[in-house]
Write a protein that binds this DNA or RNA. Structure first.
Lengths: 352, 352
DNA sequence: GTGAAAGCGCTAACAA
DNA sequence: TTGTTAGCGCTTTCAC
């Protein structure tokens, strides 16, 4: 009943010391398990801690060995996409080798979240960031510029127009084109593309690849070959159901998808509509997530070297973090594009 | 060529100030975009920052508004399991409502990692933790006790024996029993269980449920009904291939799996061996990850309310974080067990 | 516009 | 065994 309702101020080590009738140093000693404290004193301190609900500030404590924990922040767009798990795993492997720990957060396609997250990570003193940025209308890149101002190295794993920054990615236009061309060369003429979410530049790049495949043949590209689906199982399923119902009379013979999740969703829709894959419709995914190979009809897809991307991104980042400390030297931006490759499995078949 | 190779010491605001011939306060003003700095001065400071590659310490800066960013750390065991994505999403929703951000890290089944991660997160001053702990032989719970000592609230999403701690989980024994009983009641007699990894208590709980289902009938449980597989697609696939090849003459008619990933891997193996699901073998998964429903043979599985678990864990945690600050009151440990439920789809069929 | 100085919460000498 | 003190890197008054 004693202790008055203190104002919202933080409880500090001094409060505890005062309450327990000892000095700050003693409390600190208890906190850090130094063996040097008499048992009765220790007990009193512990009691005070409990009583006041004291929580030591890591920030203050850590100051002396700031290098104790090296960390890298990874900012993704959707956690429920296995794509990011692989990126993480690749980054983690390299990071661990160098004594870094990787922290993940997800913007979940929300631009405000992305801003907040990047700020937060910077405030938490991560040593560098790997970011999969959202494509944004308002082009508010302030959080990335802030990073530059604060001199915190970062590498993108999807391009941001109008920003000089390190990037590790795949040539999506080329890969998407290759996938589409594979279909065309197989004799497919009515092909459509289930495109990704609007907030992704990858979406546009993959559409562009699709388009270019056409321009290299005598087939005509038409806008209505692009069907905006999204990035998730559900998106592929729902759009698939809707599209193939609507185009019942004249369905396409092949679909390239934004990613594997969409492809799998689409396959479910087709299955449900009684349309056979690949007999009636060929399907190509993108990413080559682990499960693609595990489906009863293994998915033809574009393999993105996800683990390698994560690893490369981490390498580049760590080089910047550590190199930068040496001299103000290697400030030149690096842009690394890895090779994506079509993996033909059973969800596609040539028409001729 | 001038600037000597400084010893590895951190570059501080004072270094910048000295280099630019101004005071710390001025540098600080520049850093924080106060409008009060003359342009020529600002430029000089910026140059010094660049030159020295100065990176302001977030820790030091943040001290004044420590409450600016509230954060929760989520420690998982394997990022590439969609199970955790859903936990995260549930936690994130609640967290965001309360102004918290959720940071994820993964121990990847490595106990040393778990320790390091928890330490790190504590040092980074997260306000609380949601942890999916590894089951460990040496029972070294020091990192969790450390959390208690530092008064950082945490909630587990898998039990740790011998520790008084908040927990949100599902009754795995009951759920696993229910799944197995469903098979037995359907007339299956030769049933096996593809068990999870050794580092998981869930593994043991699910085995126990399997065992108990038998003890309630006149069927006999035998140790060789338990096949240790793992937690991943690959595990189910490889063990499945091996097991069903070896037991070609006398295969089981049903398998319950540690989780959906293992089940899907197993189905691939069976498919490859020409064994029909569910005609020849019934399969039950666990978790009900999104894709379970999307398979050509939708998976019968135990639905774990993952999103709800994440949400509940976050609620409980935030209550502890904030309640605790009020008085030293609500220190009582809470243990919440949600309901898991069998969802019958097409990968199982009754034998009678 | 800019600098000097105090203070944030904590730990690490060093004395007592 | 415990207390005193200085200092970590930064921001913020408040003079100049």
């Amino acid at each position: 009943m004693p202790s008055e309702a203190s104002t919202q101020k933080r409880v500090t080590i001094s409060d505890v010391a005062r309450y327990a009738g000892v000095s700050n140093a003693t409390v600190s000693a208890v906190l850090n398990n130094k063996g040097t404290v008499k048992d009765s004193t220790r007990r009193r301190v512990l009691e005070a801690i409990e009583k006041l609900n004291y929580r030591p500030s890591g920030a203050a404590r850590r100051r002396l060995q700031p290098t104790l924990h090296r960390t890298i922040g990874l900012v993704v767009k959707e956690v429920d996409n296995p794509y990011f798990a692989d990126i993480f795993l690749g980054a983690r492997a390299v990071a661990n080798q160098h004594g870094y720990t990787v922290l993940i957060t997800s913007s979940e396609s929300d631009f405000t979240s992305e801003h907040r997250i990047v700020d937060l990570l910077a405030d938490k003193d991560v040593d560098g960031l790997i970011i999969n940025p959202l494509l944004e209308e308002q082009a508010d890149l302030s959080h990335l510029f802030e990073l530059k101002r604060r001199n915190i190295p970062f590498v993108l794993i999807e391009n941001v127009l109008g920003l000089q920054a390190n990037i590790v990615d795949v040539d999506n236009v080329a890969a998407s084109k290759e996938a589409t061309r594979y279909l065309i060369e197989g004799g497919h003429e009515r092909i459509i593309h289930f495109a990704g979410p609007r907030y992704s530049l990858h979406t546009e790049e993959r559409i562009e690849g699709f388009r270019r495949a056409f321009s290299e043949t005598n087939l005509i590209f038409r806008e209505d070959m692009i069907v905006y689906a999204g990035a998730r199982l559900k998106d592929g399923y729902e759009k698939g159901l809707a599209y193939f119902q609507e185009h019942r009379d004249n369905p396409p013979t092949a679909v390239t998808c934004y990613n594997d999740l969409v492809a799998i969703g689409l396959m479910r829709a087709l299955h449900q509509l009684g349309i056979k894959v690949p007999d009636q419709v060929s399907i190509i995914g993108y990413d080559d997530i682990a499960i693609a190979e595990y489906l009863p009809i293994p998915l033809t897809t574009v393999r993105v070297p996800k683990t390698e991307m994560g690893a490369k991104a981490a390498e580049l980042l760590i080089r910047q973090i550590e190199g930068a400390n040496g001299r103000g030297g290697s400030d030149a931006v690096e842009r690394i594009f890895l090779q994506a490759q079509l993996v033909v499995r059973n969800s596609t078949r040539p028409l001729k």
